[in-house]
Write a protein that binds this DNA or RNA. Structure first.
Length: 172
DNA sequence: CGCTTTTGACCCGCGC
DNA sequence: GCGCGGGTCAAAAGCG
């Protein structure tokens, strides 16, 4: 498996190109080449990635809970990590169930950004998917939080990857 | 029939 | 204080 996180020193320090057979293993038929070039370096100094939204906030950030009804005001530090994926389809099914809860147009980008949330009970993992204007063949997916439940789809490959991601992010 | 998507409104932080 | 950009809610529509 080629997703070696332990080689990295910091949160995505270098745009190491990783080969990952994501979509192929999921049975999506729409992609042209099938193989994705996965670049785990959305914000780690990648030139041309100066987008304000996802660009600067990639690996880790404090997310303040703005609107909550309970009035709890703790800032939750969530590790958030993004990666770019070469794909023709926005929906990269990684094996979890996602429910879309929002979609917003982004400035400097003609494509909207979609917000998803894990539908598992008690699992507050969110992800957002944004396609880059620059390269419309690149989809940038940002994960926020970690799943604390088993995956629901037969997808050994990505389960492994996510496991490593979780180990990695929990040590931040 | 239950769940997901859609979509506009609302909310919040921040800069001016 | 206001406007803007970004994130979330929630009602209604849509779909299997």
């Amino acid at each position: 498996m080629s997703f070696k996180m332990e080689n990295l020193e910091g949160p995505f320090p270098s745009p190491t190109p990783l080969s990952l057979n994501l979509i192929n293993s999921l049975g999506y038929g729409e992609r042209d080449n099938g193989i994705l070039g996965l670049t785990a370096a959305a914000a780690a100094g990648v030139p041309g990635h100066e987008n304000k939204g996802l660009g600067g906030t990639t690996t880790e950030s404090e997310v303040k809970i703005g609107k909550n009804k309970k009035g709890e005001n703790k800032k939750t530090r969530k590790s958030r990590y993004a990666f770019q994926t070469r794909s023709q389809v926005d929906i990269l099914d990684d094996g979890y169930r996602w429910r879309k809860y929002g979609q917003k147009a982004v400035k400097n980008n003609k494509f909207p950004r979609s917000y998803y949330r894990c539908t598992h009970q008690g699992c507050n993992v969110r992800k957002q998917v944004q396609r880059l204007t620059k390269d419309e063949g690149i989809v940038e997916t940002t994960y926020e939080g970690m799943h604390s439940h088993p995956i629901q789809k037969p997808n050994d490959n990505f389960e492994n990857i996510l496991s490593q991601m979780q180990i990695y992010t929990s040590s931040i």
